[in-house]
Design a protein around this nucleic acid. Sequence first.
DNA 1: GTCTATAATGAGATAGAC
DNA 2: GTCTATCTCATTATAGAC
Lengths: 230, 230
Amino acid sequence: MASETKEQILDVAERLFAEDGVHGVSLRTIIAEAEVNLAAVHYHFGSKDALVEAVFERRVGPINEARLQWLDRIEAASDGPPPVDEVLRALVTPAIQLALDPKRGHTFMKICGRFYTESGDYLRPIFDRLFSEIIKRFVAAFQRACPELPPAEVLWRVHFSVGVMVHTLLDSERLGRISGGTCDTSDAEAVVERMVQFSAAGMRTPVLKLRKRRRDFVDEPVGVEAGGGA
Amino acid sequence: MASETKEQILDVAERLFAEDGVHGVSLRTIIAEAEVNLAAVHYHFGSKDALVEAVFERRVGPINEARLQWLDRIEAASDGPPPVDEVLRALVTPAIQLALDPKRGHTFMKICGRFYTESGDYLRPIFDRLFSEIIKRFVAAFQRACPELPPAEVLWRVHFSVGVMVHTLLDSERLGRISGGTCDTSDAEAVVERMVQFSAAGMRTPVLKLRKRRRDFVDEPVGVEAGGGA
DNA sequence: GTCTATAATGAGATAGAC
DNA sequence: GTCTATCTCATTATAGAC
């Protein structure tokens, strides 16, 4: 089904998109590294947009399927509401899991993060198609896992947890750099556990009343003129 | 110091970069909306890259200054190590604060998030210049605020907290959409408090031993072939 | 400082031979 | 399915008049 060159294009495109973003990579850069012809891209995919979609869908499709299966397993295994850390694992692990494969390295991590952060523009319809089911299912699961929280609060915290995940997918190599190597970003399972413990603690924390409006908050808003110019 | 057209260019460029990313916006789109001449961009900034840098620096400079001042205040106010939630507020609030200004709306939020997530490529040197001081100071503050944690663990959790912040900056409007309006993303102070409470709980949670390697983790890695094709 | 005009390049897409 | 050659268009950047 999948021709040699088609896979080659997908592999190279994925890697380059991960590095520089979708807009930052031209088809010509891709074909040069993939050592295929420019026309082959249009033959196999039709357009650059369709290639982008194919690149994302190749990864996100299986990952989201695995997430749903994992969630099914959790919900089948427990009578009452599932533990929040288990729901988090179902969400996070399939995405991190691929990184265990040393051949693929961190590439797919970054492409997932890119996909998420760049989906504001023309990628949004694709995103909605690929993720609407996931969002619905997991939001419901988190609502059940956190019955003591108001629904809107759960949404906020899921949002934060997704932020933890996306940022880790997208930008862990910066952490490796900053830490001078003391943070091991290559052990995906350990990464998952750290993320899950962090986010689970956030999900479980009781809702605190907002403090009265702080003086220092509105005191002196940051202005354009405050800093050094260009 | 700042001419009319120069400011106009910066304002429009910021808004468009926030929407579609740096690579997704051309100078022509900018000058069309800003109603200025193309040559004006090169006259005032020299190149598109320099414009990008100017756009980011105009916001990030003052924000990072405010962060450092806030951190100074906290550290001066407490004898021992500063409370971790206070350090988080110092990090998060100046970035969210600008969004209180109804005129600027959420634009600057997104530009900050864009800057962070897109800094993998040619923006990295700019990023390093603007953020190295911030990173150093805040990492040290968090280390002091969490003396019971190993230094590497603190770095991981700071990384996660930054993920919460960046994702909230970049993508809160998606939350508004998904929640059907029940999550109010316009009250910046409330947003900050939610973020701080979530991240502070994550920062404070004790380090758990990693569980023995889970069967379901390595059982069946997600493959390329598992999902539907393009 | 601002503008017109244009240079120089690179982009995505396509036609048509093989 | 693959390739060469080319089209068409948009891009950044610059030269030079005002």
